[in-house]
Design a protein around this nucleic acid. Structure first.
Length: 218
DNA sequence: GCGACAG
DNA sequence: ATCTTGTCGC
């Protein structure tokens, strides 16, 4: 599939933040509620900044794998909280460009709107591809929230600067919640419904688990 | 003011 | 992210 050009690539924290501020207005917070093909994205780090990005496309209904690709590369930016996306973006974009099918939804590991400047990895990938995208985080990042109830499907809002930016969502009974947020062209209700549907058995959505496995064992 | 801070 | 043993549970 085709992905929008990345350059110019930022060299400094200030330039990276400026890129986020420039792209943030392009984020759309409404869109389709159902999808045929969903793509899970993840990156695995080796040593020396070497990394492998993996994308696994699955049938949204059956969770059968439709296509999977990897791309090797190097971390493209130092790790700075809030600028995490710049480490992985080039390798993830490269992997997406190698896909012969175009997914209808990107399921990203990391945040979307629930981000210090409202523009996490899921927003960035959504805007560059034009595709609906959502973010799934494994630890709380920004904002505050109450612990959700103990049952699968229970959730509480994540609030940041007086606005709701995501949800703490229980995907397995009695297991730590995941932290979900909108990336691009999806509502928060759709994000919640899709993550629940894509995680019928484990804490994390199946597409992310498959991508994680593929990145580790290419 | 200080520490913490997606992966 | 990664460094790491054993342990509990399905």
């Amino acid at each position: 599939m085709q992905v929008q050009q990345l350059h110019p690539w930022p060299d400094t924290v200030e330039e990276a933040e400026a890129v986020q501020d420039r792209l943030r207005p392009r984020v759309e917070l409404t869109g389709p509620a159902s999808f045929d093909l969903v793509a899970g994205l993840d990156v695995h780090y080796h040593g020396d900044g070497e990394l492998t990005a993996a994308v696994v496309v699955m049938d949204a209904g059956t969770l059968a794998v439709a296509e999977q690709v990897v791309a090797h590369g190097k971390a493209a930016f130092p790790y700075v909280p809030g600028l995490f996306a710049f480490r992985e973006l080039p390798a993830l974009v490269e992997a997406l460009e190698r896909l012969t099918v175009t997914p209808d939804l990107l399921v990203c590991d990391g945040y979307g709107l629930a981000h210090p400047r409202g523009f996490g990895l899921a927003c960035h990938l959504g805007v560059l591809t034009g595709l609906p995208a959502l973010g799934v985080g494994k630890t709380p990042f920004v904002g505050t929230h109450e612990p959700p109830g103990p049952e699968r499907g229970d959730w509480t809002p994540i609030t940041y600067d007086g606005a709701v930016v995501g949800r703490a969502l229980r995907t397995r009974p009695g297991v730590k919640p995941v932290y979900v947020s909108q990336g691009h062209r999806v509502s928060l209700d759709t994000v919640t419904a899709q993550v629940l549907r894509l995680a019928p058995r484990y804490r994390l959505p199946e597409p992310i688990r498959r991508a994680d496995h593929l990145a580790r064992h290419p």
